[in-house]
Amino acid sequence: MIDRTQVLHVARLARLQLSDEEVGRMSTELSSILGHIETLAALDLSAVEPTAHVVPGAGRLRADEVRPSLPREVAFENAPDVADDGFRVPSPQA
């Protein structure tokens, strides 16, 4: 079960605004999904190692060599708001 308060808390962490209607709907839907997921709790996993990556032999490092950066106008091409040679955002304190 995930109630409205929890939905709101998680939405806040995820920087997701939800309307009142959405909070209610998400609470119902997520509860149903999490209810299904909770079957995992029945398994004894104490002696099992977690798997984060399935591919043995992968993983690598990069030599410390310079690659060209993007021209600034290309970096700004898709930006919603550019000012003073930077990406402009509203202030946190505003």
Binding site: R15, N78, F87, V89
Partner: peptide
């Protein structure tokens, strides 16, 4: 911030 759609808002958190 860097690409994609943005909803204009007065403060960062709301944005």
């Amino acid at each position: 911030v860097r690409y994609g759609a943005r909803s204009e808002a007065g403060d960062l958190l709301s944005m």
